[in-house]
Design a protein around this nucleic acid. Structure first.
Lengths: 146, 146
DNA sequence: ACAATATAGGACTGAAATAGTCGTATATAT
DNA sequence: ATATATACGACTATTTCAGTCCTATATTGT
């Protein structure tokens, strides 16, 4: 039902954490801080570094650091890396001229689905990691002031 | 990976078909026309009629007719009926004050996820069945002209 | 009344995607 | 050297999704 996967969720949490700290952070630290599976998180961070969003450092004092500016990393980027290209229905796929769905040439919802998918893509592209940092810092400042 | 379910897809195809014909259409006819599972489609149409989008007529000459104007049925309505309320992540759920995700109070992506979910909801609410009829008719007119 | 047809609804099965685990290899700082 | 961190493949469990099957109920036409 149009849910974002745990992998993508963990990816966003980790990237937000790394971006906010501004330095290198180990997978173990993130997993412990948020109480999530280290193994799964490690896979996610590996994918993100292979895709060029993170730089991985091995060994003691190692971890992950951002490979790009927070303003240059969008939610869309993260989703594509961890969940693959957005394709809400088979017929919404722009890459095929023929409608890939079971309904063949008769598919009557192709155009509307393509439109909706395009708009969803815009939503994901319009939020960057930088936006996610600002939101959280605001909350933190409030709690500090109390 | 953020896919729309077959149930929702069949629902949209069926509603589009019924809206376009402007009269009562039997589930069997739709299933045959589009080559999709009759049993699954029947369930979907039943759900849509229970939810008040369709009126069901039993017996010979029976079938389903729209219960509302095509302009009053949105993609969001259809998705909520057939897939449940949109909830892209646990923490994006506005109905709970406490973050339902495994990360408890520390969840750092709650606000951004709520924002994205709200925007997706707007996308789904901004397309009506009427829009889907117009789109398809245009295509059909083109193929007739050839 | 009866037969044909259409929806209603529950039980069940199979397939696919998702989430998570485990073991081992490789790189690196001290 | 060794402790620590990432890399990576294999494997399992869980959940969701799609589809089927069977039976019941309502309605129309003859």
């Amino acid at each position: 039902m149009l849910r974002i996967s745990k992998k993508a969720e963990y990816g966003m949490i980790a990237l937000q954490r790394i971006a906010q700290s501004g330095e290198t952070v180990a997978a173990k630290e993130i997993a412990e801080d948020f109480g999530i599976s280290f193994d799964l998180l490690a896979k996610v961070l590996n994918q993100l570094s292979k895709a060029g969003l993170l730089i991985a450092y091995h060994g003691i004092q190692g971890g992950y650091a951002l490979a790009k500016k927070p303003t240059d990393i969008t939610v869309a980027d993260i989703l594509v890396i961890l969940e693959g290209t957005l394709r809400i229905t088979d017929c919404a796929d722009h890459s095929h001229e023929e409608c890939g769905c079971s309904i063949d040439a008769k598919c009557s919802i192709k155009t509307p689905m393509q439109l909706i998918q395009e708009r969803m893509k815009n939503v994901f592209e319009s939020m960057t990691l930088a936006d996610m940092i600002v939101k959280t810092q605001t909350v933190q400042l409030h709690s500090i002031q109390i």
